[in-house]
Nucleic acid binder design. Sequence first.
DNA 1: ACCTGAACACCGTTCAAGT
DNA 2: ACCTGAACACCGTTCAAGT
Lengths: 238, 238
Amino acid sequence: MAKKIGKLGHRGRGSSALTRQRVLEEALGLLDREGITSLNMRQLAAHLGVTPMALYNHVSDKDDLLRGVAALVVDNVSYGSDSDDWREEIRTCFRALRNACLAHPGIVRVVESAKALPSSIFRPMEIALAALRRAGLEAEDAFRAYCLLMSFTMGQISYETRGPYPAADPAEASRQGQLSAATFPASAAAVLAMADRDWDNDAAFEFGLSTILAGLNNFARAKATSKRRSRTTRASKD
Amino acid sequence: MAKKIGKLGHRGRGSSALTRQRVLEEALGLLDREGITSLNMRQLAAHLGVTPMALYNHVSDKDDLLRGVAALVVDNVSYGSDSDDWREEIRTCFRALRNACLAHPGIVRVVESAKALPSSIFRPMEIALAALRRAGLEAEDAFRAYCLLMSFTMGQISYETRGPYPAADPAEASRQGQLSAATFPASAAAVLAMADRDWDNDAAFEFGLSTILAGLNNFARAKATSKRRSRTTRASKD
DNA sequence: ACCTGAACACCGTTCAAGT
DNA sequence: ACCTGAACACCGTTCAAGT
């Protein structure tokens, strides 16, 4: 027993042994504190007080590490809602996804560079698809709508966490005189309008969500009436 | 003059000297043929028959190289249309962006990993913003709508070019039994519905575009009537 | 001004060896 | 079973030297 204490005690920090969980958690911490460029096997090993090669006992690959970190962020998110309005269900689902990612801004670059995603991303997909089917969309349209929602959400999060590209930020470009009112009038006007008030990412996300849901609602209602009409036609034929 | 010919003649391929343009074009070719992992200074230099360090005479940085390659893909795209329907203008604009990117699938990863974007990214922004203003949106809403359209388009292209993540592809997951109808009924149904017909990325993109435009149209019309109403109210007060 | 060659400070990962 | 240490095959980039 003394042997056991001694064995655990001589490890760097704490008395815990190296486990996959500990590796992934330290990786996420490193990502949060120092960004994705610091998330490499050597620095991670150093933070765990261990040799780089020790990590390979708990992680098969760097890509496995990245997938594991992504899973850590996304696995325990609650995507469900108790509303019976399909639009509110979808709102809650993608808001939850966005909030989880914004809590660990570096995770977006991890997801973008990972070769595979944790399979738990099927959970928001399931919820969204179910809600969309309940709205009256057919399977194929529902999947297209899901792609639309997911693409927008991930794109938006990517933009938010990376910050606007220096060369693509209207405000920055206007400061450097690249965005003259002569060649880019609409963009220059947008900069002018945004100059005073702070840009609100939450509001931009909600705007996007509402716009998509309005469009999907239009689509679902059109689908419903065309179905009803064809039913009436059939009935009158009888 | 013979000296000049000799000087040019002893270069690896062709008689052209190394220029920034030639470096960027070869980089794009390398990207197209072998993907982003092969797009590095050493391999690029080898393809140009030159030492890695020779590239730094025409490119300040690897990030400068990436930005240059992105510019090559995006600079000469024509985003405009001759329609006077703002929705058609926006369709043409983002279709053009998508087509340009799909012509060089690797470019998406380049854009994602680049620290800066070519400033010609303002051209589609300008066209989209102008169309949205003409639709009746105020500056801030127009910019939010632009972000929505751009996020969706880039997200969609990213999904298309990377191919679905092995762990996030419903069809693949269902094949491996990760997507049982018991736990993920809606997703399993989607796979079933998509099993026979091929998934049509173009149709999915058009679906997304139409949905967003329908939502924006709703928004613009609501804005217009609320404005008209307040004007009437004011008039009746007079 | 443009290019070369050697070198440096990094990466992920293999391999043989220790306990 | 788990970890170490040295090594390999890569990266981007600096620096001194050549023309």
